[in-house]
Design a binder for these strands. Structure first.
Length: 606
DNA sequence: GCCA
DNA sequence: CAGTACG
DNA sequence: TGGCCGTTACTG
């Protein structure tokens, strides 16, 4: 058995191996010489399929050994052991690896360009769909096809995990192999046309947007929905935006004072939106670095990406154009450290920097394109890349066995969903939802258009709506479910991204009119006494939320969409009890209890 | 990659 | 549980 | 050097 699963504890790995051995498996150390005759190779994590391929580079797909090889998931092993359905003793082998890692430079995947994996590959995420996964391979295999089995598997897994193998945090490296992304950074083989397409599309997404005229907001606000969609609030907000526009135009002196020593906290710092970015020459370069890290599956990469994001934000609102680093060195912007400072220095002098001018690995634009599909993250995107898929069209070809329900739905509206949504249209949809909700549940129903809309954005990526009611109707099905059904019958909602029965958050696709574009929409139904916390959460921005939550954490409190909690007991960062809820119904009160000066939504664009 |  | 998503 | 938001919600 090749144990590759990230985070798998040595204990658990050891027990799996032992259990398999007890059932007659021959244990083979080392993976260089896999020569299965009639047996099975078990791969605990399908996510490491590529790694296995890397590990046996001398094979090619016509090698007859492929036909003898069966690759299964961890769930399969667990299930098989539980039901005593492992292949009969002596007919299968387990391969373990003792070495800490493979040498990436010498190992290449034999088919990283065209061929999908052999039919014996059983994707965990799709196993319930593949009722006949591999007709050409009659090798013994426990039934894992039925949905029930999969569920049972999951339960077993959980039970085993929590009760028996609750585990050391750090897996020993000789047992667990974590492959880094570096092994994927192959030199480009071919210049694929899809790469160019992806790059272009990315450029469009990151392109204009902030450039839309500020003056539009006034008129938008009058028919769009701000807090509760009521006119007074709308006008108040419009006036405020007006003031900000002027302040920004005048040079941005209209900021509220940040308490001393708090400038590093985004949740303390008003984000007075400045229409023009004076440092585009720098942020553009940093943006490409940020993007690269976002697409990586490596654990540290996402924090780097986050850090770049913060740095870019800071630079965007820096009041002067930076032509030499010294301008920054004396000011010291929080979030910009030595490394980025050095890069800025290089950018000032040469227009770019080393890290950004080295060309991206071949997989990067492909992964970037795949990740634009809702429900696809870096891990899935990279799997698909390794399976030979290169374009969204490739995915479409194989959609039935490749995509899960969410991804499948998202793909249907691929073109529309990658478009920005004009502010006006967000307001229109919110209004329609408000009318429907109030007809169903009465005029006391509150409806709020949230997200970047509430922060005053001229266009949005999706439509976020919060609903609440002081005395929710007691019905057989939840109010949210009722509302969704109603909106579907009206034709406003046209598809679901959350399939099952919705508890509190619905995600789906809507269309303001039959001929209009399809849009992403999120509906939140919240208890009335959590309205404040929910508004705070759903207003964002994400960076702002994270900052505020971290700040709460540091003060021994905890903040989430349900409320602000005090007296939280944590041991090594792990929360042991929930604490006492000290705020939740009122947004401003949460700021107050945290000791953060209140910031209106349009100042939360951290 | 930044920061306590 | 891992992966993805939400702000 | 370890942590980086949330014992967040939803899917499979």
């Amino acid at each position: 058995m090749v144990i590759l699963e990230k985070g798998m504890t040595p204990t658990r790995a050891q027990i799996l191996v032992k259990q398999c051995a007890q059932r007659g498996a021959r244990i083979v150390d080392g993976i260089e010489d896999i020569t299965p005759v009639q047996g099975t190779v078990l791969v605990t994590a399908l996510t490491k399929w590529e790694a296995l391929v890397d590990a046996i580079p001398k094979w090619n797909k016509s090698d007859e050994r492929w036909g003898k090889l069966q690759i299964v998931s961890l769930d399969w092993v667990q299930h098989a052991i539980q039901h005593d359905r492992l292949p009969s003793p002596g007919t299968f082998e387990l391969f373990r690896s003792k070495t800490a890692r493979f040498a990436p430079s010498t190992l290449r995947t034999p088919f990283n360009t065209v061929e999908p994996p052999p039919a014996s590959f059983i994707p965990k995420s799709n196993s319930s769909r593949n009722s006949k996964p591999s007709p050409s391979r009659p090798s013994a295999r426990p039934a894992v096809d039925a949905k029930n089995d999969v569920k049972i598997d999951a339960k077993i897994d959980t039970k085993v995990d929590t009760k028996i193998f609750r585990a050391p945090k750090k897996p020993a490296s000789h047992e667990v192999i974590v492959l880094s992304d570096e092994s994927d950074d192959d030199k480009p083989l071919t210049a694929s046309s899809s790469a160019a397409t992806a790059a272009t599309a990315t450029a469009l997404v990151h392109g204009p947007g902030a450039a839309v005229a500020f003056g539009d907001h006034g008129s938008d606000h009058s028919d769009a929905a701000a807090s509760d969609l009521d006119d007074e609030a709308v006008h108040h907000m419009a006036a405020r935006l007006e003031a900000h526009a002027q302040a920004a135009a005048a040079g941005g002196s209209g900021k509220t004072a940040v308490p001393p020593g708090m400038s590093a906290w985004h949740c303390f710092t008003p984000s007075s939106s400045r229409p023009s970015n004076l440092n585009k020459h720098i942020t553009d370069v940093l943006e490409t670095l940020k993007t690269r890290h976002e697409h990586s599956t490596e654990e540290t990469a996402k924090f780097r990406a986050l850090q770049y994001r913060k740095a870019i934000n800071a630079l965007k609102r820096f009041p002067e154009k930076i032509v030499k680093v010294e301008q920054l060195k004396k000011k010291h912007l929080p979030g910009i450290g030595d490394k980025i400072l050095a890069k800025i220095d290089q950018i000032c002098k040469t227009g770019t920097c080393d890290a950004a001018s080295t060309s991206a690995p071949e997989w990067e634009p492909v992964v970037a394109e795949f990740m634009k599909l809702h429900g696809v993250g870096p891990t899935t995107a990279k799997h698909w890349y390794h399976q030979g898929y290169r374009t969204v069209d490739d995915l479409r070809q194989d959609r039935l066995h490749l995509l899960n329900a969410t991804q499948h739905t998202a793909l249907k509206y691929w073109g529309d969903l990658n478009e920005r949504i004009p502010r006006l249209e967000v307001g229109q949809v919110a209004k329609l939802v408000q009318v429907a909700a109030q007809l169903l549940f009465g005029p006391e129903t509150s409806v709020f258009a949230m997200g970047s809309f509430r922060r005053g954005a001229a266009d949005c990526g999706d439509i976020d709506i919060i609903l609440s009611h002081p005395k929710p109707p007691k019905m057989a099905v939840s109010p949210l479910h009722t509302l969704v059904a109603q909106l579907k019958s009206q034709g406003l909602l046209i598809d679901d991204l959350t399939a099952g029965h919705v508890h509190e958050k619905y995600m789906g696709i809507c269309r303001v009119a039959p001929t209009a574009r399809a849009r992403r929409i999120d509906l939140l139904w919240v208890p009335h006494d959590e309205l404040g916390a929910s508004l705070l959460y759903f207003t964002g921005s994400d960076v702002f939320n994270r900052s505020m939550r971290l700040y709460a954490h540091r003060k021994g409190m905890s903040l989430n969409q349900h409320g602000l909690f005090a007296n939280v007991v944590r041991v090594k960062g792990q929360k042991l009890n929930e604490g006492t809820r000290i705020a939740g119904a009122d947004e401003a009160e949460i700021f107050e209890k945290l000791g953060i000066p209140y910031l209106p939504p349009e100042e939360r664009n951290a």
